[in-house]
Simulated scan of single mutants.
Amino acid sequence: MSAKHPIIAVTGSSGAGTTTSAEAFRKMFNMMGAKAAWVEGDSFHRYTRREMDVEVQKAEEQGKHISYFGSQANDFKALEQFFRTFGDEGKGRFRRYLHTFDEAVPYNQMPGTFTPWQDLPEDSDVLFYEGLHGGVVDGDINVAQHVDFLIGMVPIVNLEWIQKFVRDTQDRGHSREAVMNSIVRSMDDYLNYITPQFSRTHVNFQRVPTVDTSNPFSAMAIPSLDESFVVIRMRGMKNIDFPYLLAMIDGSFMSRHNTLVVPGGKMSFAMELIIRPALQQLIETGKIG
């Protein structure tokens, strides 16, 4: 971790809402006047979409599985080195994975490909990462140790599947069968690489719907924030004024000594109240709490 070049990571599986949370952080950085470098975890995938399809087919022929959750499809070593370099020097190189035609057209490329590698903006105050593996540990590779502030976005699993299913079929053009196969194929890697990260986070935001999500694959729409509660667990964060949070967030309550529950529509407000002071302190001192 680096006091001079802090790293903030929002981690969560595909469809978990990490991109939505990034907008809340963008607002907070703007309000604080902090210059953030933005990096998506997809930058460190090993394969283009076409290459990944080939790898999936090879694995299936061998009775194995490969997914974007696991180490085979991602370069964890490169991600750790990227974080280390930024922490030491405030520098690094990144690229973008282009999911859709709308994203790809400005680059004159096809969806499912990478942009060329490029340097991070100079004089960045902080690195902001959002993606699958901000807190991953795999053998000798420890990405989490380089992150100064780690936030988990963790909807309950049926909601996560609904979000992925709706997004991938409606926004990314994947078939229903392809999305379901992807979920099944990803399960081992999900258990081994994704879920352990949420025990390393400083704070988790877990959205729990208050509507029936029993069959996530029959859902036509994602439950709204107003149809949810958000369970917020904090760990290793000092000086959290829970009475103040309860007074400020209407309808909130404590479920455990370190866990605040808020109405879903208040999630962005709660994020700002909880995270903004920690961000300010991190940027000024290099420490959380």
Results as ranks from 00 to 15, higher is better:
Pro121Tyr: 09
Glu89Ile: 04
Gln62Gly: 06
Phe128Val: 02
Phe94Glu: 06
Asp123Asn: 10
Tyr97Leu: 00
Thr85Phe: 06
Trp117Asp: 11
Leu132Ser: 07
Glu60Cys: 08
Gly131Glu: 05
Tyr68Cys: 09
Gln62Lys: 09
Asp75Pro: 02
Lys64Gln: 13
Val126Glu: 06
Ser124Asp: 05
Ala78Asn: 07
Val126Gly: 08
Pro106Val: 07
Phe128Asn: 04
Pro116Tyr: 05
Glu122Val: 14
Leu132Pro: 05
Thr113Phe: 12
Tyr107Gln: 12
Arg96Tyr: 06
Thr85Gln: 10
Val136Gln: 00
Met110Phe: 13
Gln81Gly: 11
Leu79Thr: 13
His65Glu: 14
Gln118Tyr: 13
Gln72Gly: 08
Phe101Lys: 13
Tyr107Phe: 08
Phe128Lys: 01
Tyr97His: 08
Phe82His: 06
Gln118Lys: 15
Thr85Trp: 07
Asp119Glu: 05
Glu61Ile: 12
Phe82Thr: 13
Phe76Asp: 09
Met110Cys: 11
Glu122Cys: 14
Gln109Ser: 09
Glu130Gly: 10
Gly135Phe: 05
Trp117Tyr: 10
Phe69His: 13
Val105Pro: 07
Val105Thr: 12
Gly92Cys: 02
Phe86Asn: 00
Gly63His: 01
Ser67Phe: 01
Phe82Gly: 14
Gln109Glu: 15
Ser67His: 06
Phe69Met: 09
Gln62Cys: 13
His133Asn: 01
Ala104Asn: 01
Pro111Tyr: 05
Arg95Gln: 02
Arg84Pro: 04
Tyr97Lys: 09
Phe101Asp: 12
Asn74Ile: 02
Tyr107Leu: 04
Phe114Leu: 03
Glu60Gly: 01
Asp119Ala: 08
Asp102Gln: 08
Leu132Lys: 04
Leu132Phe: 07
Thr100Glu: 13
Gly131Arg: 08
Asn74Val: 11
Asp125Gln: 11
Ser67Asp: 12
Gln118Met: 14
Lys91Tyr: 05
Leu120Ile: 01
Trp117Arg: 02
Arg84Ile: 11
Asn74Ala: 11
Phe114His: 03
Pro116His: 13
Ser124Thr: 10
Phe83Pro: 00
Gly92Phe: 02
Thr113Ile: 13
Asp75Leu: 01
Asn108Thr: 15
Ala73Trp: 03
Gly134Asn: 00
Glu103Gly: 11
Arg84Phe: 15
Phe128Gly: 07
Ile66Ser: 07
Asp102Ser: 07
Arg93Trp: 03
Phe114Gly: 00
Pro121Ala: 01
Lys91His: 09
Val136Leu: 14
Glu80Phe: 05
Ala104Thr: 08
Arg93Leu: 01
Phe101Tyr: 12
Glu89Cys: 08
Pro106Arg: 04
Glu103Thr: 06
Pro106His: 05
Val126Ile: 12
Arg93Phe: 03
Pro121Leu: 14
Phe128Glu: 02
Pro111Met: 13
Asn74Thr: 09
